[in-house]
Computed example of a mutant assay.
Amino acid sequence: MVAGTIPLIATTPGIKLLGPLPGDLQSTLTYTAVLMANTSQRDTAEGFIKFLVSPEAKEIFAANGAK
């Protein structure tokens, strides 16, 4: 038995996701996206960050086990 992130387990061939750990054993990861001050591709970076919080991205994350 192994514990790992649900998206990794759910998308790895040969591994079966049995379910999340009980609440007191569960932890969450929080990701933060920021633009680098001197980025040469500001528009591209801003577009990517906007995509990450879009309904489309949320559907993709959910389909891969992330909430």
Rank of each mutant, 00 (worst) to 15 (best):
A3D: 10
A3E: 13
G4W: 07
G4D: 06
I6V: 15
P7N: 04
P7C: 07
P7W: 00
L8N: 06
L8G: 06
L8K: 11
I9Y: 03
I9N: 08
T12M: 09
P13Q: 03
P13M: 00
P13W: 05
I15H: 03
I15R: 01
L17C: 01
L17G: 03
L18M: 14
L18W: 12
L21R: 07
P22T: 08
P22L: 00
D24F: 03
D24Q: 01
D24Y: 06
L25A: 01
Q26H: 03
S27F: 09
S27M: 00
L29R: 14
L29W: 06
T30S: 12
Y31I: 07
T32R: 13
T32D: 02
A33C: 10
V34P: 05
V34G: 03
N38H: 14
Q41W: 08
R42Y: 11
D43F: 04
T44G: 00
T44W: 13
T44N: 10
T44E: 15
G47V: 12
F48M: 14
I49M: 08
K50W: 04
L52A: 11
L52K: 09
V53F: 15
S54A: 04
S54Y: 06
S54C: 07
P55Q: 02
E56W: 00
E56R: 13
A57R: 05
A57T: 01
A57F: 05
K58H: 14
E59F: 00
I60P: 00
F61R: 05
F61D: 06
